[in-house]
Design a protein around this nucleic acid. Structure first.
Length: 456
DNA sequence: GATCGTATCT
DNA sequence: AAGATACGAT
């Protein structure tokens, strides 16, 4: 048996989950994949194991919610102390958490119940990572063995894979994103970023070029997210369709602002108010800058849909579905900077497969901790610093989240990607009011970060 | 002239 | 596909 066929077999996996049942299930499934499995019920113990047996594992799969140590903390430690791909998993697909995981360096995020296929494919993370390292060392990518390897397993889905990059690249990347987020998307420019980054060899042109790609990247990501959110919403429903009942009050509002040249992520804001009827949750209010592809073509590219369609489409949605999840939307108002205001008021009840759980994810699941809440100061600034540098426990920390305010929502879980995602959630909902024929594809959940090669 | 955004080249 | 460069606009 050559290396190509042998590779995934015996992959050394460390599974961390406080729930012994899940641990057993996962162990069994992973064994079925011919992986070498070690299980662990405590994150701290997992860390000890990993420290003691350095280089004895290829990949870690860890639950997010664990009593002794947060999955993210574990992820952080692993990221700092050793270079292992980490897959996070949790029972819910709450977007901010997924993004948090990814932002912290998780190479994938699985939703429980985890499927066999997803586990079967985890080797790819290891492979990709190795491949990446080889590339960086050799400077070129002609690694025959790995190439064979790659071809040997090309049949499996090849998406959803990316890896953490090297520290130098990583730093610059972080600095860049931080700079962008600090400055704000509508005011950002190569020069400002350059000054903020303060990297010796870097030229303004470098940054400008990068920024161009970055913007492109974001619009791509936006689209991807849109699709994924729709898919995830579908899955949520198929899983736990009838148990939730929530009341949603939302108002979409785009602030008139100076959009210099029609950037996708210019200054439009969405404002959403939502509250859950049947729970302890309090009202939440959020303002998320909404990236729009174009002033006119809101959300859906090329088909000319805009907010003015919301009401009729929403009604269509109401009529066309009969699911238990109920959502009440009693105000939708949209102000397009150049076309006045369109608003729909009333007590629109709708049940929707799509989007609802996303809304829930966006607003409700995060009530417990609270970030510093600030009314939007300026329209349209997204993001904030990199998650890792967001101090969860520093109340007074000036989150660079101008234009974004999430009442009762932990801003600690907010970052640039999340911004993007939160936006997508809302636009996803928006889309759901129109689209009803999207296929879910959980197998290819991918949350790409900026490619490692930026600034490489 | 500096800086920007975009298109194009490598 | 990412980064560099060229170039016109502000």
């Amino acid at each position: 048996m050559d290396a190509a066929t042998a590779f995934p077999y015996g992959l050394r996996v460390l599974v961390v989950d406080d729930d012994p049942t899940w641990l057993k299930i996962l162990e069994k499934m992973l064994r079925k994949c011919s992986y070498e499995v070690t299980t662990c019920g405590l994150a701290r113990v997992a860390l000890d194991i990993l420290r003691e047996r350095k280089n004895k594992f290829d990949i870690v799969i860890s639950d997010v919610n664990m009593p002794d140590m947060d999955g993210f903390k574990l992820l952080e430690h692993i990221g700092l102390e050793m270079d292992l791909p980490v897959i996070m998993m949790s029972i819910d697909g709450e977007t901010s958490r997924v993004m948090k995981g990814v932002q912290h360096g998780a190479c994938d995020y699985l939703l429980k119940p985890v499927r066999m296929k997803e586990l079967r494919n985890i080797w790819q993370h290891v492979y990709r990572k190795k491949m990446h390292e080889v590339k960086e060392i050799e400077g070129h990518d002609s690694c025959d063995d790995l190439q064979i390897l790659r071809n040997g397993f090309e049949g499996l889905d090849d998406k959803s894979l990316f890896m953490r990059s090297d520290s130098d690249t990583m730093r610059k990347r972080k600095d860049f994103v931080n700079a962008v987020n600090q400055i704000g998307f509508d005011k950002v420019g190569p020069k400002k970023i350059l000054d903020l980054m303060n990297v010796p060899g870097l030229t303004r042109e470098n940054v400008a070029s990068h920024l161009q790609k970055y913007r492109l990247y974001l619009s791509r990501l936006q689209k991807q997210n849109e699709e994924r959110i729709l898919g995830a919403a579908r899955q949520d429903f198929s899983h736990k369709g009838t148990s939730e009942n929530l009341n949603l009050r939302s108002s979409f509002q785009e602030q008139p602002s100076n959009i210099p040249n029609g950037y996708p992520h210019a200054s439009q804001n969405i404002q959403t108010q939502a509250n859950m009827q049947d729970s302890q949750l309090e009202d939440t209010k959020s303002t998320v800058p909404l990236p729009l592809p174009d002033k006119k073509e809101v959300y859906m590219e090329g088909d000319g849909r805009d907010f003015s369609d919301v009401k009729p489409s929403l009604m269509d949605c109401i009529k066309s579905t009969s699911l238990a999840l109920t959502c009440t939307v009693d105000s939708i108002s949209v102000q397009l900077s150049d076309s006045g205001t369109t608003s729909a008021d009333g007590d629109l009840k709708f049940s929707s497969v799509d989007g609802l759980s996303s809304i829930k994810n966006c607003c409700f699941d995060q009530i417990n901790s609270q970030g510093p809440l600030r009314p939007s100061q300026e329209p349209s600034i997204i993001g904030c610093t990199e998650l890792a540098s967001l101090p969860d426990d520093q109340p007074g920390y000036p989150y660079p989240l101008q234009g974004v305010s999430f009442d009762n929502i932990p801003l600690s879980s907010f970052d640039f990607s999340h911004y993007n995602d939160a936006t997508m959630i809302l636009s996803g909902l928006q889309n759901n009011w129109y689209d009803d024929d999207l296929e879910f594809s959980s197998e290819t959940m991918d949350y790409p970060l900026i490619d490692g090669r930026l600034f490489a």
